[in-house]
Design a protein around this nucleic acid. Structure first.
Lengths: 223, 223
DNA sequence: ACCTGAACACCGTTCAAGT
DNA sequence: ACCTGAACACCGTTCAAGT
């Protein structure tokens, strides 16, 4: 047998670095982490990570793929494409809410990320189940993904103060020229999750309507 | 008559600064502009703008409001809430595509921006026209706004290379485990505008379905 | 083969000094 | 009252040097 390297010596590796990044994000409540902070957590020079990753974005992208694995693990197919699409996008939203910066890096830098790809494959499969053509499924995937990612990145950046700030600004607008705005002010930004689900259901309604039409056309042809 | 200051002496002002910012953005094709670049354009020390704005974000927010004014000017109400909502969000998307960084600043820092408020008021009015309750109109506004802003900010950051990068990554996935992904690869990200419109129409379909239901319920009560 | 550490090229922003 | 300019406190990243 060859002599193994001492097990206690935790040497740097991609996994160790990503672990540290996620650990800081979880304990510190933000995933906007500098390489200097990451180096301190690892007890290593801030620039040491460049031996294992091309740049900072690559660290974030790999971290986000691991977060998506946890999101995917919660999901159990029900057989209803509508329910499954809904649950999947809610899970993705939760992942993005906890690690927005990491997700943004993944989105912007194309790379083979196994868990992200598995989720994308599932969405495309569910859209096909909803009677969409291949071309429509691709476009619908883009629309739903952009909706989920975009909305959630904003919600992750918002604070209770900033939301209250908008309500205050709108409330003090001139009611004679902007009546709808002033009336809606107290109702706005009360529950970002509810707003997200409302929009998601709107899109699912639209898809269902399309699916029903396809169904009708098929019966039309049959008789 | 009082003596006027010499008209040729273009002194710094909020308008002059915002003008310069938009001029650089338009000629340079990006609105990610440093204060040093802005100072050079104005022929002034980079820090001089702090006499007129609290910070950089305030400059961007004011600039974005002016861009929204141009977007709003194109719009002519047709009487159909669906058509008007559609045209409005397409116009907002165009504004965000040309000045994404500025729009992000507006979104994140609550402030009274007249043109942004006018557009918000119009959206809320159109949603009420679609038979939505005040509470639903507020939530639907949030959903549509987040969809438009989020999607467009991503599209603004994407390049033909990054989109092609995603297609390549997906194409080279294992077809036996991710069949939908591999099949969809050549169809994806072909036309971001089309994907945006597809998702927007999906949401409008959902709203119309809700409007029809409200209509039916009213007739139900009548008899 | 892997990590260190000084250094670089940028940022936005502050503040005392000028006029 | 308004602008200057040096300086500060940060970034991500490079690269020659160490071991």
């Amino acid at each position: 047998m060859d002599a193994l390297p001492p097990a206690t010596t935790t040497r740097l590796s991609r996994d160790v670095i990503v672990d540290a990044y996620l650990r800081i994000a979880d304990t510190e409540g933000t995933d906007d982490i500098t390489l200097r902070r990451l180096g301190a957590e690892l007890g290593v020079d801030p620039t040491a990570v460049y031996r294992h990753f091309r740049d900072k974005d690559e660290i974030l992208a790999v971290a986000s793929d691991r977060v998506l694995a946890e999101a995917a693990a919660e999901l159990e197919p029900t057989g209803s494409w509508r329910q499954d699409l809904r649950a999947l996008h809610l899970a993705v939203r939760r992942a993005y809410l906890s690690h927005p910066k990491a997700m943004l890096a993944l989105q912007m830098h194309p790379a083979s990320m196994p868990n992200a790809e598995r989720l994308t494959d599932r969405v495309l499969g569910l859209l096909r189940q909803a009677c969409l053509s291949d071309a429509d499924a691709a476009v619908a995937y883009e629309a739903m993904e952009n909706y989920t990612v975009g909305t959630t990145l904003f919600d992750a950046g918002a604070t209770e103060e900033s939301l209250e700030g908008w309500r205050r600004v709108y409330r003090s607008a001139r009611a004679d020229v902007l009546p709808h705005l002033v009336a809606a002010a107290p109702l706005l930004y009360r529950d970002p999750d509810a707003a997200f689900e409302y929009g998601l259901d709107l899109m699912l309604d639209g898809l269902e309507r399309g699916a029903q039409r396809s169904e009708e056309e098929r019966r039309e042809e049959d008789r």
